[in-house]
């Protein structure tokens, strides 16, 4: 009987993780339009620059050839063109770094390493999450990461990353017009605290008892699945033995408080 319960618990655990994984991919998919835009801009520059550099080199070559044939000094125009090439080279470097940064963030958040506990830099997870979320909301929402440096905790990084992503996207979606989303992390005793605050519309008192229930959503169809917070609660409370709660004031904003132990207990402890 005990074995059967243990087996069913294991199966349920596996299904929950698969659901969490699917939800994470859906969340990242919703950011795809912003990510595409974020990558398209540097790609546009690189495409253009490559062509301009080719044209520039042809022109420079012709100018230098002409100077050589007439025995005159290299013309100023050739130097001007080489200066343009040099500035485009700098832009290309920045553009490549930007694309690489987005890809790095995507790789970090999309990795399928949900099944193992690892020592993880929570601040790095926050940084990657904000970088991707910013691609969608940057025109109207300012994203602030208050804590820099390394903040390590033993956790399931894929799952914790998903919780942070859920909370940050929810926070941005709660803001009508312009506003700010702030993520603050800190270590207190043997716990890591992650607070996600927004200057949005707040949670209505009548919605508060239901927000952690699966299937409940206040978002328009297509924007929310209604399982983000239910999954987040499960990941934090059941999987990491932590806690999740919030303070909210209508018209002022909401802060979600997540707390997980810095060390995870071994199975059976």
């Amino acid at each position: 009987m005990t074995d059967e319960v243990e087996r069913l618990r294991g199966e349920l655990d596996l299904l929950n993780r698969k659901l969490a994984e699917a939800h994470k991919m859906a969340s990242l998919g919703r950011l795809s339009a912003g990510i595409v835009h974020e990558i398209n801009t540097p790609i546009g520059s690189i495409f253009s620059n490559t062509e301009v550099i080719t044209r520039s080199l042809d022109k420079t070559k012709a100018l230098l050839q002409q100077a050589l044939e007439t025995g005159s000094a290299p013309p100023q125009k050739a130097i001007d063109i080489l200066n343009i090439v040099s500035s485009l080279n700098d832009v290309d470097k920045l553009a490549c770094e930007r694309i690489a940064g987005v890809v790095r963030s995507l790789k970090t958040l999309a990795r399928v390493s949900s099944h193992e506990v690892r020592n993880t830099d929570v601040n790095e997870l926050v940084c990657h999450t904000l970088k991707l979320t910013k691609t969608v909301f940057r025109q109207r929402v300012e994203f602030v990461q208050e804590t820099e440096g390394v903040l390590e905790a033993e956790c399931y990084p894929g799952l914790l990353g998903q919780v942070i992503l859920n909370l940050v996207v929810n926070a941005a979606q709660a803001i009508d017009g312009e506003g700010r989303v702030t993520v603050r992390t800190r270590e207190l005793g043997d716990s890591v605290h992650i607070d996600v605050s927004d200057t949005g519309k707040g949670i209505r008192p009548e919605d508060r008892p239901k927000i952690f229930q699966a299937g409940f959503s206040t978002k328009p169809i297509g924007e929310g699945t209604g399982i983000g917070l239910a999954l987040s609660r499960e990941i934090i409370v059941d999987t990491h033995r932590g806690s999740i709660g919030y303070d909210s004031e209508p018209g002022v904003g909401t802060t979600f408080h997540v707390k997980i132990p810095t060390q995870q207990q071994k199975k059976g402890e």
Binding site: T41, S45, V52, I81, S87, V91
Partner: peptide, 17 residues
Amino acid sequence: DEEMVITSIRAFLQLET
């Protein structure tokens, strides 16, 4: 708002026009 876009287009127009 992207400086890199301005730099790229400006360089192209300066070279060709």
